[in-house]
Every structure is written in structure tokens, then in C-alpha cells.
Write a protein that binds this DNA or RNA. Sequence first.
RNA 1: CCCCCCGUAGCUCAACCGGACAGAGCGACGGACUUCUAAUCCGUAGGCUGGAGGUUCGAGUCCUCCCGGGGGGACCA
Length: 560
Amino acid sequence: MARATRDLVGELVRNALELAQADGALPPIPPIELRIERPKEREHGDYSCNVALRLASAVRRPPMDVASAISERIMCTEPIATVDVARPGFINIRLDEEWQRGQLLSVIDAGEAWGRIDLGVGHRVQVEFVSANPTGPLQVGNGRGAVLGDALASVLDAAGFEVEREYYVNDAGAQIRLFGRTLFTRYQQQFGREVPLPDGGYQGAYMIDLAAQIKDEAGERWLNSADDPPEELAERGLQLMVDQIRDDLGLLRVEFDHWKRESALYDGASGSSTYDVAMGRLRDGSYVIEKEGAVWFRSDDLGEDKDNVLIRSSGEPTYFASDVAYHYDKFLSRGFDTVIDVWGADHQGHVARTKAAVTAVGGDGDALEVLLYQLVHLRRGDERVRMSKRTGEIVTLRELIEEVGADAARFFMLQRSADAQMDFDLAAAASADPRQNPASYVKYAHARCASVMRNAAEAGLSASSDHLQLLVEEQETVLIGEILRLPELVADMATRREPHHLTYYAQGLAQAFTQFYDAHRIVVPDDPERSGARLTLTLASQAALAASLRLIGVDAPDEM
RNA sequence: CCCCCCGUAGCUCAACCGGACAGAGCGACGGACUUCUAAUCCGUAGGCUGGAGGUUCGAGUCCUCCCGGGGGGACCA
């Protein structure tokens, strides 16, 4: 199914609305956005529409009248069974149950690709996330960005967008030079030399490990170098660091399509590098001024209240200047229609000026979206786990994954909306007990589907679509509804950039299946017709569970 | 001083960008296993959605102010 059921319903409602105007039942009105919602109460139907309430004052008619005029003209075909009008002026729509049962076959056919829609076809989106400085290992907070960005990219992909996952490697500038100098110091220390760390150098033990590794690889090669740092040494250290970051992300099952190096923005003959071209664009647009010995981005025309330094009085470009060039590259060179940058909340202050910069270099600032995520706090049961850089008790992403596993790490990280701070309970996440750990609960439901199918095969029973009309029990109806809901959920998540709904959907779906399983026997050798229908439902459940787990990035095991 | 995010059940959090009776999980209490995985299920208790105004048919959601928590406001990233 390339279209969500909701869209089919919406089209029928829109037709009815237009018909009502055409035949004079309603006066002509300007086009209105039509939203089909899913009511909380099942008695209100499978879908509802509040268009009559919103139209009432404009057409100077009681909402109930408007609702009636529209609902009478809704064609009760294919997905729709009945249409009712309710109290204030809602139009409530109930789906045809036979049609819904028939959809289960499409679900099974789609398998773990269930939920894919064509909402975003032809639209190229880049999701850039993590992009932590390669001067140290990833921290827990980076993990949240990793999971959020990866799941969002998966959701957009499922919604039909052409998606690229990108990691921006900040391999230029002062901090990377400091990284090189720290590494050089540690390298010399490997040979027993007493060399002090540079001012503000990177304290972490990982720098010693890096130095030891480089010593093993290259011996004394740079020991007596006059450069600080030796360029090749620094480059090798950076490579190793990036490799480690890539490995850590791999443990989380996060993979990038493209690793973009900041230094590449400066490559090329003078005047032709991305950086030079982007700066040229700013100058052409009169967005550049010089004052106090530095070069500034003047953006008050674009609604910014403050100028920002592009080139320091030392002649060195700022991080922001690189960012201008980088976003020029994203939009003007590579031509993405939309770019979503996933940033930690501590970068909140950069949002406005980066959007302004996109506009200034000739792009559309609104096509740059920045998804900010709030901080993560760790706790273990009731005990707070401190993550202080000063005390050195930093919890790395790798440590987190080793303690709780990739599945729980991903599921827990994704459970909160990006703009809510998060308490991550290591004790709950590390537990295999589904009562503590919803990731286990969902996986268990999937494994149970597989188990049921195995037992059915042993009993000589198999899924059949011949008697789906037997699926009329309350738990069966609810479960079918949950399964069929995924495509519209994908649409909502993609549109609103909110992948966290996945975890709630997966839990609700798992619960619906488990309740069905608990209330009714699926494999009944004496009743092959009913068994065949229920096995079809089981297969569809398994597909929907697998599809949602795949989007979350969690394994869907066949046994536990 | 200014800007951004948050404040919802004892705890952790949802609530489809204004809808119908604010929902889950955990925790608490009480039930259900000779049958496909009880790693489960069912039931009960638990709320003036931080506070005060406002907007309208209708507000947890939007506007103003206040309180509280977090994050920003550099020629750092």
C-alpha cells in the first residue's frame, strides 16, 4: 500500500465536501485543509473529521447541519462502511471490516517493509547527525543524537523520501590542532620522554592508547620531528579516532552513507574551493563587513539581531565560516531539497544564524531544519550516574552499549520526544525482563508469533485467507486496527520529524497481539478454518512488529 | 537582562501541530497457569495537566504574566 488508509478516507470526505458545494447544500467556501483524525474512543469510529465544526461559522450554519450535509454525500465504498454525525458536529467514519481483514494479505506481502508509503517520492533529504568532534570517543549524549537521527532517516525513507545519512567530521581548526599536539606529546611519552601536555590538551586515557597504537605501527618515525604536531602523525591519529567513532556507531547499528570532512571544504585552487565560493556569495550579497580587524557576517537584513565573526583577526576562519561553506555545499552544490541537522540543545544558539547563512548564500533558509534534542541524564535505579568531564567520570557511548545492549539503548533513547530531557535508567535497560524493558516486550511478542507459526506447521496447519470473516473477536478487531495503522503513523512521523512515536506504536501493537494470543487459541487442529484465519492474523502481526522494530533499529528475533 | 526547551498519576513519560471521558509502562494492592513461550494476561487505586488571567462552540495544547528545572547568549565548538 503506497497510500495510508486515512488518505483514502480523506479523499472521499473531500469529494463529499465539494459535492455539497456544487449542489448548493453548502455555500462556496475557500479550500480548507482537511484533517482526518483517529478518535480516542472506539465508539466514535475508526476515523473522524472536524471539518464541519471549523466551517460552521464561515458558512453561518449550525455545525450539525454542515456535518449532515457533508456526511450524506460521503460515498460508502471500499474502505468506508458507515458514516455518522455526532454531537457538536463531528463526522465519524467506520471502516469496512471485511476490507480491513483483506488488507492483512497486503501486510504479509509487504513483510518488514510494511508501512512504506510514497509521501516523499522525488524529494531528496539529508539528515546530518552525531557529527561529534573527532577529538575523543562518543559520549552518551551523542548516542541520543545517533538514535534520533538514524530513526528519523529510516522513517523518512519509509515515507518514500530519498534520504542520505551524513556525518560531518570537524577535522579543521584549533581543536583538531590541539588534538594533534596532545597526541604528539603522548607519542613522545611512549618513548620515555618527559613532555608536558599542551595547555588545555585532551586529558583522556584514550589519547595514550592512540599514541601506543601509533608507536606500534610506526615506531620512532616522528619521534624527532620538529613539527608540532607532525602532520602525518596528526592525520593518522584522526583516522584512528574516526574509525573508533565509526565502530562505536556500528555497535549501535548506525551507519552513515557519507562522511564529509570539513577540511574538504577548503580543497581546491584558490578561489575555487567550496569555502571560497561560499564566501564569495556572501560578499556578492553584501553580507560581509569588516570591523575590529575581523570579517563578520552581517545578517540584520535576515532578521538576526547580531553579527557573527567569519574570519578572526588572526586570519583564521571560524567554525561558523566552515558551517556557511558546508551548508552552501549541502544546498547549492549537492542540491538537497531539505536538510535536517540533528543537534544537541547546547547548539541552540546556532540555529538562527545558520538558517540566515543558507539564505545569504542563495539557498532557502526554511529548507534547513534543525532538530534539537535535550540532554540525557543517566541513572541506575534510584542512583544518579554522574557524567562530569571534570571528574573524568564520563560515560562513553561504548560503555553504555556494553552495559545495556544496542536494542535497549536504541529503544530507550527513542522513547522520548526530542525536546524533552531524558532520564535513562541503566538498570531497566539492562534488564531482559519485559516488565522492566519494553524493547524486550516487543521482541518477545515477535518471537511468540514465530513460535506460534512453528507450532502450527507441526500440527499441519497453515495460514489461509479463505475464512478471514471468522476474525470477529474484540481482540482480533483491535489487533487488525493496530496493524493497519502503521502507514499513517509513518506519514505523521515523517511530516513532523518525530520518530519517537515508533516505540509507543510498537508497544501497543505488541500488547494487542499478546492480548489476542492470551484470549484465543490460535492453533486449533479441530478447526482448521479458524486456525487458518488466525494464523493469517499472526503472520500480519509478525510483519508489522518486524517492520516497526526495523524502523526503531532493534532486532526482531524468532525465539527468545 | 535576553532567547530556547521542559513542568501531566508516587516514578519515567505519551497525548495524532485547538477536539469528544487526559493515556501507557513501572511501582502499589487483588486475581488468573494440567492447553500455542505465565518473559504473559485481567482487575483496583492513583489527576484542579506548576499557578493566575485571556482567546472560543471547545485549551494539557494558542496568547500574556508569575513560579520552578535545564540549556544557550564569546574573534570556543
